[in-house]
Simulated scan of single mutants.
Amino acid sequence: MNEQITVIDITLDNFNQIVIEGSFNKPVLIDFWATWCEHCKTLTPLLEQIVASYGGQLILAKVDCDQQQQIVAQFGVRSLPTVVLFKEGQAIDGFSGSTTEANIRKMLEKYVEAPATPEGDLLEQAKTLYDQGDKIQAEALLKELLAQNNNNMLALILYARCLAERGELTEAETILNAVIDDDYKQELVAAKAQLAFLKQAVDLPSVEELQATVQEQPSSDELCYQLAIAQLAQQQYEQAMEGLLTLFKRNRTYQEDLPRKTLIQLFDLLGNDNLLVINYRKKLYQALY
């Protein structure tokens, strides 16, 4: 099969070669479509564009459902459009109906290495800089990226986080409130949790001052909570988690269960795979039951 051909019309004659055998070499995306299907008229060109961006790593196999009813019956297709992803001779994923480009790419990234793009490279560089603590350089790269495409939701979310880190809380909140893309719910929840902690910490004394005050008044629930928030604003996550958990164990009724709710917010910020989250989620569960 010609390696440059990435979009192929499927018939009974070539089905086994392209879909079954071919999927052992590279994933095959099967597009079940028909001329009378209105959603197909927008989805099929989008699939062709996405497959082309993978530079030969992915095949689009198009099945005209009016002409290839035996193949349609074999797959049990009940509605159009329907898309099925084949790999190593097996159907491994897919969807029915229309969806967004972001959703399709999110599905594909689990099975195919994402194509490198200048925009993607900039975003990855910005993420790396942000994670390393270089928020200024990360923000500069994000500005460059957003100047090219101000609809990149992940870039907008990370840009808002950079703004929040340097105290531009109102602008960061405006940006996050404008992000409505359902594809990045987790990233948006994390950014909003970070912003909430920073807003709470604005009028608080420094971590050092609060630590000194708590040593003098260790039984003050309010001071202990303030210290945890100040620590969160400084990204002292483990200390904050320990303080919130201790406060929860000591006084579950404080501010209507606020320590536990704040811990849950912090778990959202750091993500379920974070080792601190795994550890303290278990500790919180044990404290609850």
Rank of each mutant, 00 (worst) to 15 (best):
A34V: 06
S96K: 01
A160N: 00
A114Q: 15
L227M: 09
T6E: 05
L163K: 01
E209Y: 13
R281C: 11
L156R: 08
Q235A: 15
E242K: 14
D268Q: 11
I264E: 10
Y159I: 05
I104Y: 05
D64N: 10
P81H: 07
Q200F: 10
A114M: 15
E109V: 11
Y225P: 07
L176S: 00
Q132Y: 12
V202E: 13
I157P: 03
Q231W: 04
E88A: 14
A34E: 04
Q231C: 04
N150W: 03
L156N: 03
V63Y: 00
L156P: 00
V214I: 10
E216F: 07
Q226M: 13
E208D: 14
V179M: 08
K127F: 14
I20K: 02
A126G: 08
Q132A: 14
I92H: 10
Q74C: 11
L276W: 11
E242Y: 10
K282I: 15
T100E: 10
N25Y: 06
T6N: 08
V84P: 02
R260S: 14
I264F: 11
A114F: 10
R105N: 10
F248M: 08
L145F: 00
E165F: 11
V77Y: 11
P45M: 07
T11R: 03
Q286D: 14
A140W: 05
L58S: 00
L46C: 08
L284T: 03
V207I: 13
L258D: 01
K127W: 11
E222L: 07
E168G: 11
T44F: 05
E256M: 12
I92M: 10
E3Y: 08
L154Y: 07
D93R: 08
A172T: 02
L129E: 01
R78K: 15
K106E: 12
V19S: 01
D131N: 13
Y130Q: 07
T253A: 15
N274R: 02
L204F: 05
G56L: 04
F197H: 05
H39S: 15
D66C: 03
I71Q: 06
E119V: 04
A240I: 12
V19K: 00
